[in-house]
Design a protein around this nucleic acid. Sequence first.
DNA 1: GTAGGGTTAG
Length: 523
Amino acid sequence: MRYARDLFDDFPDPDVFLWNAIIRCHSRHNLFRDALGLYSKMQLLWVSPDSFTFTCVLKACSALPSLEMGRRVQCQILRRGFDSDVFVQNGLVTFYAKCGEIELANKVFWRLSERTIVTWTSMISGYVQNGQPLEALRVYGQMRKTNMKPEWITFVSVLKACGQVGSIDLAKWMDEYIASSEFKDAVVVNTALIDMYAKCGSINLSRDVFNRTKDKDVVMWSAMIAAYAVHGEGQEAIDLFKAMRKAGVPPNDVTFVSLLSACKHSGLVEDGWKLFHCMSEYSIQPRHQHYACVVDLLGRAGYLDRAYEFIRNMPMEPGLSIWGALLTACKIHQHVPLGELAAERLFSLDPYSTGHHVQLSNIYASARMWDRVSKLRVLMKEKGLSKDLGYSSIEINGKLQVFQVGDKSHPRFKEIFEELESLERRLKEAGFSIDAESVLHDLDHEETEETLCNHSERIAIAYGLISTPPGTTLRIIKNLRACVNCHAAIKLISKVENREIVVRDANRFHHFKDGNCSCGDYW
DNA sequence: GTAGGGTTAG
């Protein structure tokens, strides 16, 4: 790289081809700011950029990302008449999507007179990256209507969208479709399939894909380990890691993040601790993320002091995820002093995050320190923090239903609320208090994120109960942060109503049947 | 010599 730059600098009067080459060279080495600097310099020297220059520069703007710089580049593109060049326009779609400006990406996309498979794939993956999987699938549907032939990258984005939606029926349909295509043995596509099935709740189908794929690479092994992690099957993840070593595939840093996260969800503290310390055997430097996993691992298991000690001995400055993990642990184990310490660090690192305030508030509430709860509420109001609305979704007969707190938009909402009341009655009779969180609610008529989630979750459960006959599987998919009481309630419902209930909370699955839950974790 | 991509997780 250095050598290339020296050569370039020695050139008396580089033309646009040379400028393009050196800009691309910097981009390839992740030196995006330098690439953009060179682009500015080139303009100062009156060298006219061409379509190659613009695609490279847009890529650098996307990678940073820098919305402001990209917009300036777009002005140049218009001024110089490159607004019909399909490469440049594809770069623009990607650029806006990577900056989170998905509407602008969409605008550029539909204005184009010509769309290649890359354009379509850029738009689909743009929606996926911005967490809008249904839009991504819609665009894919539109693409199919034009008889455009998908490439393997297109499938990867579509599979990711399916995983985000969480519908197992959709997942199976895509799998069958791909099986009939020329990409059925592609390792990258199969890796995306493994990930998709895991996110749709079926670890067995993930494993089927894994088993049938030859020449597995490190990414595929890691994806399968991550799949076990998300399903709370820590021992399986560790066994797979052993098999991976036996197969002679060296792990990478991502493999270890998945492994450590598998351990922490299964309470395998000592295994996780050993794995963390054996990373150097593979010449992998633990990153901040690995440290965060260990803090989580120790913290969830209740070793709060050990976790704090570990943080203090870290070779790098502990960031958001470290203190966040400690705060979560303090919430689980109701440790007020350490929770306050973690929250203090979080507030200074990220003063305007609602989540951290809510978590600390919940720690206080669980310790019944109501005065501190109110003080915190005042602080939140002063900072102007708004609440994030929690929502839940539920899949019934392949159809996805989304509920938000207090949602009355559903045509059968009256029935739903009645079912909810009857549900609470039945639970109370059985000795469960599902409404513990509403103590907080009653305190000052303001709901925390958590009570909001619980509320929509309960609506979702009620809806599932009135829509499905006993004996069927109920899948509650998104964003559920079921508290201990809700967990107990779902257990009971699975028994009383003879239903299998699959719940996905923030990061893993829980299968409820006959009053039992197969993913234990800390509950 | 240009564009889209698989595993990390609250």
